[in-house]
Design a protein around this nucleic acid. Sequence first.
DNA 1: AATGAATGAGAGTTCATTCAT
DNA 2: AATGAATGAACTCTCATTCAT
Lengths: 191, 191, 191, 191
Amino acid sequence: MRLRDENKRKLIVQTAIRLFSEQPFHKVRLDDVAEAAGVGKGTVYIYFKNKEELYYSLVYEGLAELVERCRAKIAEQPTSYRENFLVIIEGLADHAVHHPQLFEIMRTVAIPDASSMWDAKRREFSELMEEVIRHGIAAGEFADPHPERTAKYFMAMIRAVMLYGSGVTDPKDLAAHVSSTLLGGIAKKSP
Amino acid sequence: MRLRDENKRKLIVQTAIRLFSEQPFHKVRLDDVAEAAGVGKGTVYIYFKNKEELYYSLVYEGLAELVERCRAKIAEQPTSYRENFLVIIEGLADHAVHHPQLFEIMRTVAIPDASSMWDAKRREFSELMEEVIRHGIAAGEFADPHPERTAKYFMAMIRAVMLYGSGVTDPKDLAAHVSSTLLGGIAKKSP
Amino acid sequence: MRLRDENKRKLIVQTAIRLFSEQPFHKVRLDDVAEAAGVGKGTVYIYFKNKEELYYSLVYEGLAELVERCRAKIAEQPTSYRENFLVIIEGLADHAVHHPQLFEIMRTVAIPDASSMWDAKRREFSELMEEVIRHGIAAGEFADPHPERTAKYFMAMIRAVMLYGSGVTDPKDLAAHVSSTLLGGIAKKSP
Amino acid sequence: MRLRDENKRKLIVQTAIRLFSEQPFHKVRLDDVAEAAGVGKGTVYIYFKNKEELYYSLVYEGLAELVERCRAKIAEQPTSYRENFLVIIEGLADHAVHHPQLFEIMRTVAIPDASSMWDAKRREFSELMEEVIRHGIAAGEFADPHPERTAKYFMAMIRAVMLYGSGVTDPKDLAAHVSSTLLGGIAKKSP
DNA sequence: AATGAATGAGAGTTCATTCAT
DNA sequence: AATGAATGAACTCTCATTCAT
């Protein structure tokens, strides 16, 4: 009796991320995933109930890692919220640059079912960001009539550049731009 | 694929938009589209080469309408670029609120093939927006080190709120927030 | 547009009867049925919801034909119930000899679900036979404490011989034996 | 297939009898048998070569027990063949009532392969019954032109009632009816 | 032009069987 | 001996596409 191997699961996940980021869901065959991962077709079904669950697992786990990373950044003591803001967006951009495939997968993910786990994770991320803004407002550093909307802008902006920008490779640069745009806007200040 | 009856074509398109915005590509059957549109299955093939082309037609036509609308706004004489900025974003938000399904479809559209018609249309939109910013910079009203990125933020921000914000119904309000965030940022100005 | 062809359905049914009588359910592949019938695999699914429904259709239709045949025999005016008895069993035996495969299929049919159509048909047959016996009792020709059981013996006896007897080919002979056994028994009458 | 632990084998057999009598062959998964029996899946393969052999073992062993039981009845000295007849049928009915699942399995057992062990056992049973009738004929108590057929009627009649009769619980009553029908028939004797 | 019956390649999934532990 | 993770052949069923009518 072989023992259930957590590495095997990870192997399947990594392979699936690659394939699903290259092709849309319906063009990726489970046979391909299995073969590319070097496991039997049935093995995939030991670790994932079906193709759809495999797919959503990728989204969920990708988001979960992102949330964790941001949570860690936020936990650090802020000197000022403005500076902290940049750090968080940097973390987000860094993650995006290092996992560009996950952004692609998140983009094509199907209509969110309110009950789905991955959608809950997405909302968790959104609420985390919202909280940051609200703290900044409370501290008198930010002014925003719709923090819940601005919270959604973070990832949207980074994603837009990741998906359609031609090969961003410097997360710091990207983060700086997003951060300065969100904080200061592009309108020239009258002196 | 002859286009005899333009009304019939529109009927199919409208039906397809609805179905594709409710289900991911692979879960929408051509039978469903035909039945919901009240035409025979074969009829769809008279107007569209195949399922994929039908799908991309929706994206393309949706984007084309959007580009047209923005182009019209831009053509209007600007009083100031700042004010014009709001008008354009209002047009974009208005379109989004009135065609939420198209946004859903655009979101899930498959990996862009650089040669695809719809992707060209997407780039066209992006370039249009970039041009607006560059004009503003030239006029001394805007300052932006990466107008090509900011151009991508427009739709991304609106889309983020459309998709995940709970039922935005006032395009003016949405546009005002996006516009003020992009223009002035959320950082409190020191007096 | 081709018209739905009732002959095509019959073709599939006939082919399926043959294959299911040669192999147990799980060894018959739908591909084989389709290929043997000379139709596409998908065509079978136009006429039957799935493999199981195809299978039960055979049983149902076989039984329905049998019931019809017996009903016709019974409708004929009886001279005496004893004589009539033979005629019915002859009909039954005749049917069995001409459709030996249906008996094989009926034998292997899965556990009857009380709600299944084919089982209702089976009960209909049983009740028909029971009625015959009861009429005979009423007419003073038969004496039987359990007509509902005897009704079940009819087909069971014929089936037993059909399935395990080595190639009965004369239905009259088979019917005569069943009939005389049921009517007179095998015990030698003391003179 | 080594038979180390005879109890474990019996456990598997008993579990399999239950499951196979509830579902047709192809719906019973070996996993289910193993789990229901509380043993590992691989363990079943230690005691039985494969699923088919497990299945046929049930049939074979069920028939073997039945044959043994009848042989014992027959071995007893007959007072008269008529009386002895009843005793044998009673044994058969008794067995049926106490092992209804085995009757269900025997019914659905696949097409007999003349070379299969279980079919040989079935023939053995048939021949045993035939012999009883022939002895009766030789003793002048019975008259039957086709003892080989009547031999097949025994079990068929009991089975018919077992399978489709609504819950027979009294084997004596069932045996009495089968016996009297076979011996004396249902036709009213003219005085 | 319009249809929907027919098709069959191809996909997801199952499950009997194996075998490392 | 016992196990259950791993396997992949084989299965059912779907559905985009075709084409006779």
